[in-house]
Write a protein that binds this DNA or RNA. Structure first.
Length: 348
DNA sequence: AACACGGCCAACCGCCTGAAT
DNA sequence: CATTCAGGCGGTTGGCCGTGT
């Protein structure tokens, strides 16, 4: 009746693998392939249980594993996938070649989760933490502006559609496609088909205490409205666009400047811009470079006088990140360029 | 130098599902 | 059909290491 036990429970080694054990496992799999983990340890001369061997191989020894730091793109992909799939680490890993579910899970718990919390986002539901939100401040805030014409002074980083979208914030909680959120609220995903999830806006607001809050708001605008094209939180390959509703042309560059002392405060704004669908020249390293910015902020490194009519030649390019990305600044102003790529991003 | 503390991550634990018997 | 186990998965743990005091 039933199968025989895969291995003896006693006498098997546990704990960290030695280099010798690793080599035995590698040699055996290279020669015989993997599978049948039940008999593999014995055949390979390992005093390990098959399960331990499988984990060691899949999480560490596999030749196609990509080691090292997660790229910004990978990080964004993880966040987007998690917003749709929840803690389905294996499903997320399947869309990130070379990364294991264990590695992604660890990275989420040690990096991304904390970052989202700092941004005021609930890492489980991917919705703003309403306990931090003062929505009335959105409507009264001078932070809002519909124009980029004022090139100097602190610019609003909020999409002009924010006010209208913010009105739907409360309903967005009920309509969240996040399975975690639906589960928490005892609801089914109203979209049924997992490939047809609702698209969300991630927008950033400031409250009266100048606290930065990020909000996820479901799109309420038709795609035919070029001023409000939704940014998808779904991986691009899952989107099935309605070509007939594609905006014809909607791509341009914008330039953003801010006062030097507000750079750090505005960094989160830039992150929010990216989340909203803007492509920036920031990389993952930029999120941790406040100390480098501080160095640039010293008088010796910002010698140029402020010139409100400066063109690019009047700006000093500060190599402010480890990967040689440059951010322009002039006097006490930083210039930040971002490209609106909504037309190519939504239906990629 | 010594210690405490926290971050990180490899590995384990326990549960679930489907297949084998 | 019942039982048993392999494989897969997500959650958790424990030890290593870097940093601060």
């Amino acid at each position: 009746m039933g199968r025989s036990p895969c291995c003896e429970k006693n006498g098997l080694k546990k704990g960290p693998w030695t280099a010798e054990e690793d080599q035995k496992l590698i040699d055996y799999i290279q020669k015989n392939g993997y599978g049948n983990w039940r008999t593999l340890p014995k055949n390979a001369g390992l005093q390990r249980c098959g399960k331990s061997c499988r984990l060691r191989w899949t999480n560490y020894l596999r030749p196609d594993i990509k080691r090292g730091r997660f790229s910004f793109e990978e990080e964004e992909t993880i966040i987007q996938l998690h917003s749709v799939l929840g803690n389905k680490w294996s499903a997320i890993a399947a869309r990130l070649p070379g990364r294991t579910d264990n590695e992604i899970k660890n990275y989420w718990n040690t990096h991304i989760r904390k970052r989202l919390l700092r941004m005021g986002i609930d890492p489980v539901t991917h919705n703003p933490r309403l306990d931090l939100l003062d929505i009335s401040s959105i409507l009264s805030s001078s932070f809002y502006s519909s124009s980029h014409s004022n090139m100097f002074g602190v610019q609003p980083m909020v999409n002009p559609e924010l006010l209208r979208l913010a009105a739907s914030l409360l309903s967005s909680q009920r309509n969240s496609p996040n399975p975690n959120y639906a589960q928490q609220n005892g609801q089914e995903n109203q979209f049924g088909n997992p490939h047809q999830v609702q698209e969300n806006h991630l927008v950033q607001v400031q409250n009266q205490d100048h606290q930065t809050l990020i909000q996820e708001i479901p799109s309420c605008a038709p795609l035919s409205d070029p001023s409000c094209v939704p940014f998808s939180s779904e991986p691009a390959q899952l989107i099935e666009p309605n070509v007939d509703q594609l905006p014809s042309s909607y791509s341009h560059f914008n330039t953003q400047t801010c006062q030097l002392n507000d750079w750090q405060n505005n960094l989160d704004n830039f992150i929010a811009m990216e989340n909203y669908g803007y492509q920036s020249n920031l990389t993952s390293s930029d999120y941790d470079f406040t100390s480098q910015i501080s160095n640039l902020s010293t008088p010796s490194s910002s010698p140029a006088p402020l010139n409100s009519n400066s063109n690019s030649t009047n700006y000093i390019n500060g190599s402010s990140t480890e990967d040689e990305r440059e951010i322009s600044y002039c006097g006490n102003l930083f210039k930040y360029e971002y490209q609106d790529i909504l037309d190519s991003n939504v239906f990629m």
